[in-house]
Design a protein around this nucleic acid. Structure first.
Length: 419
RNA sequence: GUGAGCAUAGCUCAGUCGGUUAGAGCAUCUGGUUGUGGCCCAGAAGGUCGUGGGUUCGAUCCCCAUUGCUCACCCCA
């Protein structure tokens, strides 16, 4: 048997309603904040991600689905959306059309990792990007939108964490201070952390090694070394969050994995999923647009993992959806009337009802069971004495009451069903 | 890439201290009025016990390998 490739999943008809529900909430929240949807290709030139996300990151280093196409181009399935959105923004000079572009997206992403609870190789994200303003209110807006979406889904067990990485100058300065501080402890660090001292020293705060954690416990924090502008920016973000009544905490150890972040970074984690608990993450990236060959324009964005969100919703039973119902099921009692039933069904379908009927030549009992199984509100019985008199019988499946109609009285039947 | 656990019917799982016809619940199908659902009752269908090899008179059960899944690490949404 051929099965879905490792880390990919089928979304079966029974799964679709909750996905649609999630998507409808995402769309409604984003559009109320006046974000416009953007769709970009699922694959891009490999160099876009190498430059945009950063060569040193795990995503680029070991997780991308990269291949040569038939003409020898190196192609990569998008592992995240920001790089593609920014590429499109630059390519179409969106900054020339309006000063601030507020964009959102939804779609599949690809990373070749070992699957785990809440992690897949093809997974889905929604997210937003605001390009063209350094206003801290936009930083807060991202967090508010994400939080509002989660809240509308009924999620409870959430924690908003924010931090600031400042600007490159103060960050470089701080990195040197941190490096000096760690020198006496260097030999005690885990081997992974030793490598990171040179490549990405901030990530040492992320280490789960007991020993590393102890060492980092007393390390100086970046927040203490931010320049004045960065501190003010961060302060305004916090004020906006306070005003929005979203609970948050400053986590000076929150360091995000992508190279392009400046100033604000944030993450919302759920206590209701497994160890992959980040439902969304994002931050400001004032250098990325320029890095990708565009104008010197600031940006901020976030991305949220839809599988993780739905997992949290299921574990918390945070919402329930109505059962899917049919308006009408046609039961043909008598052989030879199949065409009449079929055409009658078609007529009601064209009048906006959700209608089905038997295609398996089954007994009346089996047809009734099918009507029940599909949660049909009404059944139309076709055949027998009534049909010989020119009538068909409408049965209300919740009350069991039956009513006769002339077999051409579609309008009467329609209004009976619609009320 | 590393580690651990699991693999029996469509689904969720029993079970065999190695022995002949491998079970349950749910789901499916048929019947219980010649033309009426849900509940109930009766019955049916459905499994080469993940795959390959080994041990044995005999393996679904023990051993080895392999594949897949799950969870965790790394990292991330």
């Amino acid at each position: 048997m051929i099965k879905a490739v490792t880390g990919t999943r089928d979304t079966l008809p029974s799964d679709i309603p909750k996905w649609n529900y999630l998507q409808s909430i995402v769309e409604s929240v984003f559009s109320r904040f006046n974000y416009k949807e953007i769709r970009t290709p699922i694959f891009e030139d490999t160099s876009l991600f190498a430059r945009g996300i950063g060569e040193a990151t795990d995503i680029v280093g070991k997780e991308m689905y990269t291949f040569l196409d038939r003409s020898g181009e190196s192609i990569t399935l998008r592992p995240e959306m920001t790089a593609g959105a920014v590429r499109a923004f630059i390519e179409h000079s969106l900054d020339k059309k309006q000063n601030l572009n507020k964009l959102y997206y939804m779609g599949p992403m690809f990373r070749q990792e070992r699957p785990q609870a809440g992690r897949f190789r093809q997974f889905h994200q929604f997210g937003a990007e605001a390009l063209g303003s350094n206003d801290p209110l936009l930083d807060a807006e991202m967090i508010i939108m994400a939080y509002d979406i989660f809240a509308q889904l009924g999620l409870k067990n959430l924690l908003v964490k924010i931090n600031s990485l400042g600007v490159p100058a103060s960050r470089e300065n701080y990195k040197n201070i941190l490096k000096k501080h760690l020198e006496p402890f260097f030999e005690k660090l885990s081997s992974e952390s030793k490598k990171r001292v040179d490549t990405n020293i901030l990530r040492l705060f992320d280490s789960k090694e007991e020993n590393d954690r102890n060492i980092m416990e007393n390390a100086p924090l970046l927040l203490e070394y931010l320049d004045e502008d960065s501190l003010q920016h961060f302060e305004k973000v916090k004020q906006a969050l306070l005003a929005s009544r979203i609970p948050f905490e400053v986590d000076a150890r929150l360091v995000r994995g992508l190279d392009y972040y400046t100033h604000t970074t944030f993450e919302i984690v759920s206590g209701s999923v497994g160890s992959q608990s980040a439902l969304c993450g994002g931050g400001r990236y004032n250098l990325l647009v320029k890095e990708l060959g565009g104008p010197d324009i600031p940006g901020i964005g976030f991305a949220a993992g839809m599988e993780r969100i739905l997992l949290a919703c299921e574990n918390e039973k945070s919402f329930t959806l109505d059962e899917e119902k049919l308006d009408l099921y046609l039961v043909t009692i008598e052989k030879g009337l199949e065409n009449f039933s079929y055409n009658t069904a078609l007529n009601f379908r064209r009048n906006g009802l959700t209608v089905d009927l038997d295609y398996l030549n089954r007994s009346v009992k089996a047809q009734m069971r099918e009507a029940n199984r599909t949660n049909s509100r009404f059944v139309l019985l076709i055949g027998g004495d009534e049909f010989a008199r020119g009538e068909i019988v409408l049965k209300n499946m919740s009350t069991g009451a039956q009513k006769n109609f002339g077999k051409d009285e579609y309008d009467k039947i329609l209004s009976e069903i619609k009320e």
